[in-house]
Nucleic acid binder design. Structure first.
Lengths: 337, 337
DNA sequence: AAATTTTGCTCAAACGTTTTAGTTCTATTA
DNA sequence: TAATAGAACTAAAACGTTTGAGCAAAATTT
């Protein structure tokens, strides 16, 4: 069974390719194709199972009706939550999504953006990682519809939507201080992107504002990597040595390693140690005791990002401002006394 | 900054489009383009930032170097684990992946397959859901490289790789019976696909073989849907009414609802009730007590599926048989006494 | 010196669309 | 009755590639 083309239909109906194209694109009125003929064409098209060849359409029009979504890891929580909303919202406007994961790897990220470019995607949604700076700059310069999510490069002016990282961690610190925690640890990772910088800065500044001078030893930087064995171990050693009375984990996966470590040390929380995690996770609510978190408003993030992108795609002067920061929300559960 | 085409390069170098095309495709030797000219072309191409227009290439060659992966939900565990492996393996062979989620919705699934078809993807990997039968049959008839994952349609002969669902649940039942559980409940969903049928059949047959006649009331069919509130409630009512001494959850997300329900009822496991879940989840290992599971060998599943697909893409007579069933493995943790 | 082969390159068609600028009728108007 | 307007459709170029066929010039063989 061969692919059916406009030509095949034209031949079968006994008309020209152009006529078939016009009818199937709903332009019959504009071009005054008679209703009987239009009907016949539609009928044959349906019967033959005609599906336009998107390659040909794309080549001709330069449009693909596809949006590329580049994420760090496809198995990450953030991705799952984002992808679902983004896909649904864009579908409403006739766009499909291609997902790619950069694996937090500069080279791969670069290649992916090029790949999307080659495939003529109409718009880009990117969770940026280190090393993507140049490609993103190029896209912006070419005027491609582009919106960054979760982070951005301070040096490049691009539309972006992120969580209020500073405020979120700030709230967490204030919350813990109000609960009379004193020796508050901070576990973060080595991803050199703005969102992590902000979280760390918030920790340090808000601690001081609260009258506690955080020692350098209270901070633990865990390298970002696959696996997790090592990371959990690092956290275990850290907790053992520093013996904080509370810890803030700056990312949800770090919190999970943290819980493992705490189990291993046979510590109980909130009795022995208070913990609070930036970014919620299915595990945290189910765990007993449930973990207090600073919840990222991921659906809002996604919706806002889509709104911005759609505005750009439709060349409307954007109604939403091009850079948005959304408040995170502290959800008190049982991991803090 | 406009897109750079072969023409632009040809113009700049002062040669023909064909020559440029040959050189950039590494066919200079076959067509005897002189080394100096080839070098110059490559140089200009690099300097101008030439990237082939995949739409044009695809139109001409009918190939896209893209494989379509259709899953039920993109936020599901199975997807996350699968996608990661599939992407990595296919990348090694120069293929990229487009992910689509059918949302377990027949209409959407249909559309997605058509979309992929229109975009000329070279191969299809599909986690089939109800209602996709016709489209899958068509793909198979057209001889498109296709492999189904996790399930299949008994009526259509297609390559597929799945877990040994029957054996997995069988092991779970035998394990519980050996531990002297008697009133063993079974919670499953209403997805009318072969994998669920097999799990249910295994439960019923192995119970009988073990000398227990399972009452109809011991089975709970939970409708598949978003949200989860209702489902958790259904399970709660079920546990309250039936009071089983152990429950098998036929899918991991059902197990999660189950844990919630058990928490709500203030039951303790393994003391009050034993539970075992088909398909592992991050939550289950972290939970205290950790949940006994029948673990699906997802990476193997993915690797096998990719191997089969690649063989088809390369038109090699497949070395792996076209339909594979991989054993699941029972992992005893603390949710069973 | 003529015939043949080899080298180095180019022409042009084709892939399946979209779309502008027609063309051929028929119906209306002056 | 000739000019004009409208209706219904079509021809053909273009998008950027790939690729088999072809061609001129140089090198080699007879």
């Amino acid at each position: 069974m061969k692919n059916v083309s406009l030509k095949d239909i034209a031949l079968k109906v006994g008309t020209s390719i152009s006529t078939v194209s016009f009818v199937l694109n709903g332009k019959e009125k504009q071009v005054r194709i008679s209703e009987p003929l239009a009907k016949k064409i539609r009928e044959v098209a349906r019967k033959e199972g005609y599906l336009p060849n998107r390659m040909a359409v794309g080549l001709k029009t330069g449009k693909s009706n596809i949006v590329g979504l580049v994420v760090d890891t496809i198995s990450g929580r953030l991705f799952a939550a984002l992808a679902e909303v983004i896909e649904k919202e864009l579908d409403l406007h006739g766009y499909k999504v291609i997902y790619c994961s950069s694996g937090n790897n500069a080279k791969k990220g670069k290649e992916l953006i090029q790949l999307l470019y080659q495939h003529q995607v109409d718009g880009y949604m990117i969770i940026p990682t280190e090393g993507m700076e140049k490609e993103i700059c190029q896209l912006e310069q070419q005027g491609k519809p582009l919106v960054l999510i979760d982070s951005y490069f301070p040096k490049i002016k691009t539309a972006h939507v992120l969580v209020d990282n500073y405020g979120g961690i700030g709230d967490a610190v204030n919350f813990l201080i109000k609960k009379h925690y004193k020796k508050i640890g901070f576990v973060y990772n080595d991803v050199a992107m703005i969102q992590m910088d902000e979280r760390k800065r918030a920790y340090q500044e808000k601690m001081k504002e609260g009258g506690i001078k955080p020692l350098a030893a209270w901070l633990l930087k865990v390298p970002f990597a696959d696996g997790g064995e090592e990371q959990a171990l690092m956290i275990e050693m850290f907790l053992k040595k520093v013996q904080p009375d509370a810890v803030i984990f700056a990312a949800n996966y770090l919190g999970i390693y943290g819980i493992e470590a705490i189990h291993k040390l046979n510590l109980r929380f909130p009795a022995d140690i208070g913990i609070i995690c930036f970014d919620d996770h299915e595990v945290f609510n189910l765990h007993q005791p449930a973990i207090t978190v600073v919840k990222q408003p991921v659906p809002e993030l996604a919706k806002t990002a889509v709104a911005i992108l759609l505005a750009k795609l439709q060349k409307e002067p954007s109604t939403t401002p091009d850079t948005v920061e959304i408040k995170a929300k502290l959800i008190e559960r049982q991991s803090t006394r």
